[in-house]
């Protein structure tokens, strides 16, 4: 393949950043997108230059570490696929590919394509849990939960926290992430006792982190590698409304 890459380079949060162009050799269609970047980096190192920093870990689409906006689309736009599982066979032989980091105030750039997503962790710390200590839990089958409810909670719980929803949203809103986390817990009977408090605290932290608001464009749902549904945002809107009405 004869690709032209336009890659975002940025030394640190303070640096304004710029695009750099590469024309890597030896790219084949069976490579994953990240393996293609590996090849670029090998070339850079051999030329004595600093390789492109990018986040990645499991390379099997579950850890949520990889975070590339490829041609304007988080994770490259293939349905239900993270950047690490995207393969070069999805591109044309002579394509020009633009690679950028997640762009959001709440996700400051650390270096090149690496961003700081600790805002997500801080949101979870505000209520993304059931307050149950280790030990003392009743027998697991004491609490029957209907399959429908359990499955719906699982649909929400599948979120890998990659932040593609924020990256895709024109407002850099984190509503899909937060609503998935809130809904996972609030749907289940185990999470009900803290449901109101959870949604209030998590939304408040979300606002404080500087994410935008939801304008229901559906971009988040379209790029979510785990296909989390906008319905969870509706549910969180409902939960939050009920919670603040109760006081």
């Amino acid at each position: 393949m004869n690709l032209t890459l336009k890659v975002w380079r940025q030394k640190g949060a303070a640096d304004p950043g710029h695009f750099e162009t590469f024309q890597p050799k030896g790219i084949v269609e069976d490579m994953s997108f990240l393996e293609m970047l590996d090849v670029v980096n090998e070339e850079l190192i051999e030329a004595g230059k600093e390789p492109i920093a990018f986040d990645h870990d499991c390379r099997e689409g579950i850890c949520g570490t990889c975070s590339l906006v490829i041609n304007g689309k988080p994770h490259g736009g293939q349905k239900a696929t993270t950047a690490c599982q995207l393969h070069m066979r999805k591109f044309g032989k002579w394509d020009t590919i633009t690679i950028e980091p997640w762009r959001a105030k709440a996700f400051p750039v650390v270096k090149d394509l690496v961003v700081d997503r600790s805002a997500f962790d801080r949101i979870i710390q505000k209520g993304g849990f059931v307050s149950v200590g280790t030990g003392g839990a009743p027998d697991a089958n004491c609490l029957p939960i209907s399959k429908e409810v359990s499955d719906e909670a699982m649909d929400a719980a599948q979120c890998i926290g990659c932040g593609a929803c924020v990256a895709a949203c024109k407002n850099a809103s984190a509503m899909l992430f937060v609503s998935a986390k809130v809904s996972h817990m609030n749907l289940l009977p185990q999470g009900k006792p803290e449901a109101d408090r959870r949604v209030k605290n998590m939304v408040r932290q979300m606002d404080e982190e500087g994410f935008g608001a939801c304008t229901v464009t559906g971009s988040c749902e379209a790029v979510c590698p785990k296909e989390i549904s906008l319905n969870f945002i509706t549910k969180m809107n409902r939960d939050y409304g009920c919670a603040i009405l109760k006081g």
Partner: peptide, 9 residues
Amino acid sequence: DQCVAQGVP
């Protein structure tokens, strides 16, 4: 038991 109490679906 512990995991179910935590909300593992």
